[in-house]
Amino acid sequence: MNLYQDIKATAQAYWITLRNMFRKPVTIQYPEQKRVPFERYRARIVLTRDPDGGERCVACYLCSAACPVDCISMQAAEAEDGRRYATWFRINFTRCIFCGMCTEACPTRAIQMTADYEICRRDPLTLVYEKEDLLIDGPGKEPDYNFYRHAGIGVVNPRGQGEEERPPADVRSLLP
């Protein structure tokens, strides 16, 4: 019967709200309780160093190009030994949407995302991070990776003596 169904449904609705009143709220009370983010949570961006302590970033502009909101900017330069670096490197976190495109684009694993989600300030200008704010001491994810050991451009090791490298072929020896 329709009326019976209606009354039953209403009573059930009241019962559910009454029952919920005595259940524990699911709220995480933020400043006191903090949520533990997932392993691959994407939040504040850092610049990592290679295991030898050098900067990983080679200022290739790939992150900046990949960034959908254009929040990364830098200026490239080259050191005496042929090592490329960024003279300045700037991420504007007021714009960053934490999409992770920069980390995907980075060929040297320099730019990485951390789980630190607590970045809110009263003054938005303090959210513009310079290179010294971004650089961390450790290698982050992939702790053993050093780009220059694999690149074969003779910065860490002389040319041809890299880890997966054979000595350069003497072209003349290949002549018939």
Partner: peptide, 10 residues
């Protein structure tokens, strides 16, 4: 408060 508790909030 009560509405909050009914909706599993504080």
């Amino acid at each position: 408060k009560l509405l909050g508790r009914m909706q599993l909030r504080y």
